[in-house]
Design a protein around this nucleic acid. Structure first.
Lengths: 110, 110
DNA sequence: AGATTATAACGTAATATTACAATAAAGATA
DNA sequence: TATCTTTATTGTAATATTACGTTATAATCT
């Protein structure tokens, strides 16, 4: 149906999947790389960096905002973006922990 | 268009996105958790564990196979699944490195 | 004021994803 | 052989995603 049955999974599974889903597109990987190297860049820079049209970049930024990873500063007509490093680090630990847990489970069998 | 422009991104970006994309669904998180705890389980067990229909589980297994994370043993009518722990560990490092790189970039600015 | 710039929002086409019923295939069992 | 079991495949409906043209909004510049 194209619709995910989130209700049959637990919070941990849904949250883990949501974070990885947001990272699951090369444009968003590219955008995150660029913002990390150019703190408080604007949308136009990201358009140039990714090679995508402005509305497309804007849409990807919205996806990244869905998990609150972006800090925004408005200055005149510009909007500047930066990564929320604390949250980024939390997500890093969360995803890495998932990997480690699965790995430990596997290894306790062999 | 629903079609990702992979060609405008580099291999690193595409690979990172592909791994996270595969993890980006709660059913696949659930499946990986279950297989890790029950090495060489079969499809029926996963159907029970996830609460999804058998063809849906089969489809999710295919997605996970796309990045070669599953080892299969055929025994009679059964197919048993296990996680390729070495590859899993490689992917863990790859994704964690991405997180760390972005984080380091961010922190070198502040 | 009128033009320009930056970004978000809207609309929409093309494609992808999710989910499952029905079926197929292949081995096991009665 | 006929039936049952297990899993993959096919087909399909519903929904989501990706991408971008167009438009709206808001600020800046001439």
């Amino acid at each position: 149906m194209g619709i995910t049955k989130n209700h049959i999974f637990d919070d941990y599974q849904n949250e883990t999947a949501l974070i990885t889903k947001v990272l699951g597109h090369p444009a968003r990987i590219s955008i995150l790389q660029y913002i990390s190297k150019n703190e408080y860049c604007n949308c136009n820079e990201l358009v140039k960096a990714t090679g995508l049209a402005q509305p497309t970049v804007s849409q990807h930024l919205s996806e990244i905002k869905r998990i609150n990873l972006l800090k925004q500063k408005h200055q005149g007509k510009n909007t500047f973006y930066a990564i929320d490093v604390d949250l980024w680090n939390q997500y890093r630990r969360k995803i890495n922990d998932f990997f480690v847990k699965v790995q430990v489970n596997c290894q306790s069998k062999s």
